[in-house]
Computed example of a mutant assay.
Amino acid sequence: MAQATRPTSDVCNSSSDLASSESPVQIKGQTVRILTNEELEKLQRDQILVSHFKQQKLEKEAQKNWDLFYKRNTTKFFKDRHWTTREFEELKACKKFEAQKLVLLEAGCGVGNCIFPLLAEDANIFVYACDFSPRAVEFVKENPLFCSKRCKVFQCDLTSEELQVNIPADSVDVVTLIFVLSAIHPDKMHLSLENIYRVLKPGGIVLFRDYGLYDHAMLRFKSGNKLGENFYVRQDGTRSFFFSRELLVELFTGAGFQSLVNEYVMRETVNKKEGLCVPRVFLQSKFSKPE
């Protein structure tokens, strides 16, 4: 389940994490973004849900819709995520010594925009990488930087297929879950987290980043795209959920994790094409598996 319309940009209801240019200033905190009266009225008006029949069809065709996304966009939609080591110092700090081999799982790897910068930066990282889309997995394997000695990539539905088929239990130091959980139906999110829990070492860490409640992308959805509370469908059939801190902690602790950090990240993104400066809200969190 990769990090999805994804129409054209992040501010157009896409799940691209940072497609437009951004202000370098960001604010982290535990308080949800305060809506304007206009935004509040819009959300209160939008109460009509997509039909049960269509919702079942979207769930059934979820993998096909992701594959079509990658067929249209190939490897050109997302920028490489060079910010991960800056935002998540655990990718370096969890090593006890410089030459230690770090074992990482990128759950929802897309076409490799996170894993290839990490592999290039640190020779002592081995990466397991999986994605819901078989087409995305093939793009990772076709990347010139792909090396089977340093990376094992495979297709996996985190909600129904055991990671332990490809990864030994209790063997992963760090899991990155970046713009992935939001694409999974809320009723199945706990299954993904329980699956991840089983391959993570005791003391291991999950680094999480995804859409936060009242992000601009949430407010841009038009009437008729709502699937449930804070859950929407894009034009291409891919879906997006917007998390509150409270719900995220409930999901992770319910799967056995301990909460270390759980913050909203607020920043402004400039959409030059539309001449807009829009508020972005992400949730950035760290959870550990008890020793």
Rank of each mutant, 00 (worst) to 15 (best):
K149L: 11
S148Q: 15
K152M: 11
F241T: 03
L219D: 14
H190E: 15
V206N: 02
F242N: 09
H216L: 10
A217P: 09
K226V: 03
C151P: 10
K226C: 05
T176A: 01
V180A: 04
V199I: 04
I167S: 05
Y214R: 01
T238R: 12
Y232T: 02
E229Q: 13
R239G: 02
I196D: 00
V140Q: 10
R209Q: 10
S148F: 15
H190W: 15
T238V: 06
Q164N: 12
L158G: 00
I167Q: 08
D170Q: 14
K222N: 12
T238E: 13
V153W: 02
H185E: 12
K222I: 10
L200F: 01
N143V: 03
R239D: 08
L181D: 01
V140T: 03
R234K: 15
D236E: 05
T238Q: 11
A129E: 15
F146Q: 10
D131K: 03
I184G: 00
P186H: 05
G228N: 01
D173E: 12
I184L: 01
L181R: 07
D173F: 00
L213C: 12
A129S: 08
A129W: 00
G237N: 11
T238G: 07
V180M: 03
I178P: 07
G204K: 07
F154C: 04
R234D: 15
D215A: 06
D187L: 06
K149C: 10
S133W: 00
A217K: 15
D173G: 02
S182V: 12
E138D: 12
F241V: 00
P202C: 00
H190K: 13
L177G: 02
F231T: 08
P134R: 03
I196V: 06
L200H: 11
V233I: 13
L200T: 02
L177E: 02
N230P: 08
V206D: 02
H185K: 13
D215L: 04
K141G: 04
V233D: 13
V206F: 01
R239K: 12
F154G: 04
A217G: 07
N230A: 08
N225I: 09
M218Y: 10
H190A: 09
E194H: 03
R135M: 11
L227V: 06
K152R: 14
V165T: 14
I205C: 08
V137M: 10
I196N: 01
S192L: 04
D173W: 01
Y211V: 08
P168E: 05
E162S: 09
F154R: 04
G228H: 02
I196R: 02
C156M: 09
R150P: 08
R150H: 09
F179G: 02
V137K: 12
G203R: 08
G237D: 05
V199G: 01
